[in-house]
C-alpha cells in the first residue's frame, strides 16, 4: 500500500502514514476552518489500510493544538483506527505536553469512546520547539 505523506502547514498537521516503515504519525497543529476537507483523504486512506493492515500498528498522535472542528475529525480518524484493530494489534500513543491538561483530557475522552489500546506519553514543554 502506498504511504500517505502530507507536510504540515501553519494550520494543518503533518501526516506520515508509512506501512512499510511501520510509522503512523499525526503531529503539529490542526486548526483549519474546514477540517472535513483536510481529513477526508486521511480517513479514506485508513479505510483502505483496514482491509490488509500490518500485524502490529502503532499510531502516534503528537498534536500541539486542535480546534474543535479538528477534534471531531481526529475522533473520526480514531474510529477508523478502531476498525483496523479487528485485524491488527493496534496501539494509539497519545503524546501531550506536561502542562497541557486539555490535550490529555481530550485523549482520555477519546480512549473511553473506542476499544483501542491507548498509551499516554508526557513530554516536557521545555523541550518543545514551537511554542516559546
Amino acid at each position: 500500500m502506498k504511504p500517505l505523506i502530507i507536510e504540515a502547514t501553519e494550520d494543518t498537521p503533518m501526516i506520515h502514514f508509512h506501512p512499510q516503515e511501520g510509522r503512523f504519525e499525526i503531529s503539529k497543529s490542526s486548526l483549519p476552518e474546514n477540517a472535513v476537507e483536510f481529513y477526508s483523504p486521511i480517513i479514506h486512506w485508513l479505510k483502505s489500510y483496514a482491509a490488509a493492515p500490518n500485524p502490529i500498528t502503532i499510531f502516534d498522535f503528537n498534536l500541539e493544538y486542535l480546534n474543535t472542528a479538528s477534534s471531531k475529525q481526529v475522533f473520526e480518524v480514531i474510529m477508523q483506527i478502531n476498525n483496523i484493530a479487528h485485524k491488527s494489534d493496534v496501539t494509539v500513543r497519545w503524546h501531550y505536553d506536561t502542562i497541557d491538561e486539555d490535550m490529555l483530557g481530550l485523549g482520555t475522552r477519546f480512549s473511553h469512546l473506542v476499544n483501542v489500546k491507548f498509551e499516554f506519553i508526557e513530554y516536557d514543554s521545555d523541550d518543545a520547539l514551537d511554542f516559546e
Binding site: N34, A35, V36, T68, A69, S71, K72, Q73
Partner: peptide
C-alpha cells in the same frame, strides 16, 4: 459535521 459547523 458539515464543513462549517460541528457544534463543539
Amino acid at each position: 459535521a458539515n464543513e462549517r459547523k460541528t457544534g463543539l
